[in-house]
Each structure stands twice: as structure tokens, then as C-alpha cells.
Amino acid sequence: MLSLREVRKTRGEGSQRYSLVIPRLDLAAGRQLALVGPSGCGKSTLLDLLALVLSPEAAQRFDFVVDEGHVDVAGLWRDARQNRLAQLRSRQIGYVLQTGGLLGYLDVRSNIGLPRKLLGMSDDGTVERLAAQLEVAEQLGKKPQALSVGQRQRVSCARALAHNPQLLLADEPTAALDPLNALRVMQLLLGRVRAQGACCVIATHDESLAREAGLHSLRIACVQDKDGGVTATLEDER
């Protein structure tokens, strides 16, 4: 579904420079990956690239395979076709943000249902079903401020899954939870992903949790360069 070759992203200059290099990454339906590595190594940057919200600065190949065929994502960024990228995001991608990213002025039901509404999908009970499976059914009428951190995380998971995306991305979805709850939320999330036949990439600093949840780990390695900057490289799967 996503195919990346020699994709680079650099931020800052000199000793403040940070570069991320992805030599090779292929995502396919059903794959469940964990991005592991120390914090600050660029897990979030990689997720943002995959979520089509951050532009790559160079790419040999950055293709999104959808039903209609290949979409050259790097080309879309080059041509600044923001609305086409937005359309791809709304159809194909669900993103669980580290801090939830819920809209404070909408109640839980509207937050979860928003991606479906944006696509004009009918109200077929998906929102209630997801809320029940992620154990936030009682919170549907509440505003996010009234929820605990764990509940917010699960609502965020429900929102990311509501429109049946092909690709689910999650950034430390369980960081704010105690280990017991963390595993439970992770299992709830992965259960839904499996049921929908989607691919998922979950960034976490907790390798044991990733192992326990049955995720295939991908490591990001950081190297300090001579100029003082940092280059992070994603482990090549082969």
C-alpha cells in the first residue's frame, strides 16, 4: 500500500541538524509494525511522513497504492497539491496522535464520527460499535475535557478506525497509561485493525509492550555526524 525507497527528511542546520533516512519500507495490508527507538530518534517524524502531513525532501520512490492505482506522493508534495493529499489522508489513513488530538468543542460521538462525515459515509452504527469495543460507550455524549487520559486515547483510536482506513498510524498511543491499561488498549486497537484487515504502524518507546502485543519491530538507529548533526536511519527489513 505504501512503498518508500531512499526517502529523506532534514530539519535544522549545523549542529542542530536532524536527518531521517528511510532506505526501504514496504507496507501491505495485514502487516502490524512497531517503530521502536529512544525518544527523539524520529519516530514521530517518520509517522508524519507516512501520514502524508510532512513533506519529504527527497525520495527515490514514495508511492501510495490505492484501488485506482499508484499515486506518486512525492510528486504531490512537489506540486503542492495539498487538497489531493488531504483527500488521500481522509480516505486511506487513520492517525492516533500521542495526545489524542480530539476537538474540544465536539462531544465524543461527533469526534469519532467526524472522519465518516467528512467522507459522506452513512451512520451505520460503526461509531457506537467502536465505542463499545474500545469501552468508551458511556462517554459518547461527553466532551473530551470530561474524560480521563486513557479514555481520550481510546476515543482517539476509535476516531482513527471509524472510516475503515487501509493504514492506521499511532504515535505512542499508550504512553500516558499504566502498563496494565497500556497492554489492554494496545490489544483493543490491534484487534480492530486485524478485523478491518488494515496495516498498522505503531510508534512506541516500550519494546516489551510491542513484543507482548505481537508486533513486528522496526528499529530507528541514530548516529552523531561529524558536523554535530544527527542522522537517524530506519532499519532495512531485508
Partner: peptide, 14 residues
């Protein structure tokens, strides 16, 4: 922040 979440979800510039 709220606007960038909407952008992330796939709302167009317009």
C-alpha cells in the same frame, strides 16, 4: 491546533 487536526483528518484548504 484544532485547525491542524482538521487538516490532518483531510479537510481541504478551502
Amino acid at each position: 491546533r484544532e485547525l491542524s487536526v482538521l487538516r490532518l483528518l483531510g479537510f481541504s484548504t478551502g
